[in-house]
Design a protein around this nucleic acid. Structure first.
Lengths: 335, 335
DNA sequence: CCGAATCGTCGAATCGCTTCGACGACTCCA
DNA sequence: TGGAGTCGTCGAAGCGATTCGACGATTCGG
């Protein structure tokens, strides 16, 4: 492998000049620059990442911590991850993949050994033990999600409260008054990722504000869970005309069970889903949905990390406004 | 951050001694070792990854290339990825995540700049353009999958031919003679990842060997695709008593449509699925399945990379034997 | 037309670790 | 008891970049 010295020799300049051509930190005459670039191309020179990191204390690598649990929401996690990788590349960074189960130790390991410039952490819980560790690191971190006390750490996420409000407004505007929320499984609430609660809060608040008659119900994402959930809803809120479904795994089954019960969507009952748009589109019926913009959130997380790295100002907590797209699963209530 | 010199000073030894304590490459007296370890602990010393890479030309990082397409098989991809990460950690390595869409350039970038010790590549196609690039790298690589010409590159995968044979043997043993394969979507065949073909070959060969009456049919993983597929099967192979389903996305719908058509599993029709075991277990009925052992394959890929790195012998192509587990979806054919 | 600022480049120090050769101090066997 | 090995440790030379101060050569303003 060619080194910077080889390039320098080939171009008849000093190594530092080559470095400046590469980094652009000092002016270099067009002539020299071209000769250097020619030499670089000819020798197939790629700077040695380790050497560079050592000299510059910059690795151009971001750590991404993903949940290892394959039980929940895998496709969404994958969307976030690919968004982060793609965005990182546009900022000339690579991504080191860590799993959540290494916990605090993993974060400290990569940070202390200077493998990464910054960390992006997914699946943050309300009172996440990793936060205090993150705050002590010399590298900045960005959370995807919103813990109880985000002090000192940047957070980005979808504004789930607003998402709930938007779903209800849409249904209310269509004339629905009796609306039920099919929520995530109880395990999700238990685990303490706050998005479920935030959605719930938004739902309840908006319900009050819009003077609707609503109820909420967690839902286990299997056939029985869905049936039980729908049965409860019918029992507790008879005449319900619309469902807000915040549970991707259960979504398809909810539609199927509703239909199995003899009700048509949207003629007899409207459905708004909270899910990525490709999920909404791949249902038997294209669903009216509030998008979970994994791509944007991931991109924003990277962008925030970059700003942090070069000392530009950031918003400590950035909640993206939701977007509702009306498709074919919502309509005016019958009668 | 403490450096090795700080540790050396604190322990009253030379930096090289500290290094030898860490690496174990030379004998160090118990006394000294303990003093050094105490100093390391006290100062919270973590060797600087860049410096280490520079001096030792080892990064302790593996590159993992994953497909970015979120359209197919996301959960399985994620299983592979987490298996690779977990296994890497047990070998004291980290994982740099690359997406397939960076193509050849991405591989060369990380390899030439010495960011990684070896590469693990998923979603390899029959005649993958990346192979020639991989062969030129100084770092070894391991494929998850099996291209047409794997010469010079280690490959690991499930033995899909054997998997098909095993599924058929199981059904034949139960007394089934008319069996249909519900295969992946046409897009999968088109794309050229060879596992689909290998399964097909195994299916056809075993069918002949066992003297069965079989047919095969690709299947689009949506409601209509599944219906069409099942209709074709009933038309072309009337009296079919068993289905082999090699299509995870369609699996649940296949079961539902079979039931919707008035047939019970396994009383009227048996089903063997080719899928990860958690998928098989999470169906309405626990399915008899041939496991896709993502965890093992990922672990083996890492293990192979490690052997390559320290010059131990490897098998160039390692196809894991399949495991069929009988659950509740297979039985003797009716009548 | 001269001193000062700017431009373009160089040389050397530095980043933090690994590794190799060297070298006392011991052990061991003849 | 002496020579040959081990054992345990040290010192110094890299590894391949970046970065800072220095310094001629230009350019420019007054």
């Amino acid at each position: 492998m060619a080194t910077i010295n080889d390039v320098a020799r080939a171009a008849g300049v000093s190594p530092s000049t080559v470095s400046y051509v590469l980094s652009g930190r000092r002016p270099i005459s067009a002539q020299t620059r071209e000769r250097v670039q020619a030499a670089i191309a000819e020798l197939g020179f790629h700077p040695h990442a380790g050497a560079r990191a050592l000299a510059s204390s910059r690795t151009n690598v971001l750590a991404l911590v993903v949940p290892l649990r394959t039980d929940v929401n895998v496709p969404v996690i994958m969307q976030f991850a690919t968004a982060v990788v793609t965005a990182s590349r546009t900022h000339n960074h690579d991504v080191l993949l860590l799993t959540k189960d290494e916990g605090t130790a993993g974060l400290e390991r990569v940070a202390h050994s200077t493998m990464v410039d910054a960390l992006i952490v997914m699946d943050v819980e309300r009172d996440d033990v990793r936060l205090q560790a993150l705050r002590k690191l010399k590298q900045p971190s960005v959370l995807i999600g919103l813990p109880e006390d985000p002090a000192g750490i940047a957070c980005v996420d979808l504004d789930f409260e607003a998402a709930a409000a938007q779903a209800l407004r849409h249904l209310a505007w269509h004339g629905h008054r009796k609306i039920a929320l099919v929520g995530p499984s109880p395990a999700v609430y238990k685990r303490g990722t706050t998005y479920a609660e935030r959605f719930l809060t938004g739902f309840t608040d908006a319900s009050a504000a819009l003077d609707l008659e609503t109820m909420t119900h967690p839902c286990e994402p299997d056939r029985e869970g869905v049936r039980a959930c729908l049965a409860d809803i019918d029992a507790q809120l008879p005449g319900v005309t619309a469902l807000v479904v915040h549970n991707e795994e259960a979504l398809r089954m909810v539609l199927e069970e509703v239909q199995a019960g003899g009700r048509r969507v949207p003629a007899d009952i409207s459905v708004v889903a909270i899910c990525p748009r490709d999920v909404a589109l791949n249902m038997p019926l294209p669903l009216t949905s509030v998008d979970i913009p994994a791509h944007d959130v991931g991109g924003l997380a990277v962008e925030t990390a970059m700003r942090l790295l070069d000392g530009r100002p950031i918003e400590p907590v950035r909640l993206l406004p939701p977007t509702l797209v009306e498709r074919e699963s919502t309509a005016r209530p019958a009668g």
